[in-house]
Amino acid sequence: MKEILKEIEERFGPIWERVQRPKLAQVGIEPAKAVPLLTWLKEHRGYVTLVHLSAVDWIEQGEFQLTWLLGNPETEERLMICSRIDRENPAAETVSGLWPQAVTYEQEINEMFGVSFPGSPRQGVPFILEGWKDIPPMRRDFDTVAFVEKHIPGREGRKHIDTRTYIGEKFGEKGYLHD
């Protein structure tokens, strides 16, 4: 996989790369160059399959990562193309023109992360959620526990005692350096 990584570097400028397994490599590239790279890989290098498209929320860095996984059915090699976009008003270029199934992936990411793919046919159309009002739920700052407590309250009469705290209280554990 070294050759293809080298070629990508030469053609598309600085990238971040890593060979994860003999048949799986990762490439990090700036968002503007991602789709040109994907197109080139599909059209000239046999990476004709879009295996999946996924998003990762790096909330601490204020970024979303998009990961397109391409497959070359000839060699069975896989390339993971990663790109980080701004978490504020996130948007990325669609690949639905290159791969029909990308429509669903882009629809789902739009729904679950709030990343939009202008020009992709089913943007804004609910896929898994219907009538969802909250923030896109796969974002890291969506509070699952609060959601559950609000919508699906637990069984009544349950009371769990945390052993660690309980022992401290029962045996008079105290601190002397802090009030």
């Binding site: 660690r164 022992i167 401290g168 045996f171």
Partner: peptide
């Protein structure tokens, strides 16, 4: 992190 040790320590140090 069960804290059983805290009970046994005469000074009840914050072990876990």
């Amino acid at each position: 992190s069960c804290g059983l040790c805290v009970a046994a320590c005469p000074a009840h140090m914050h072990i876990p």
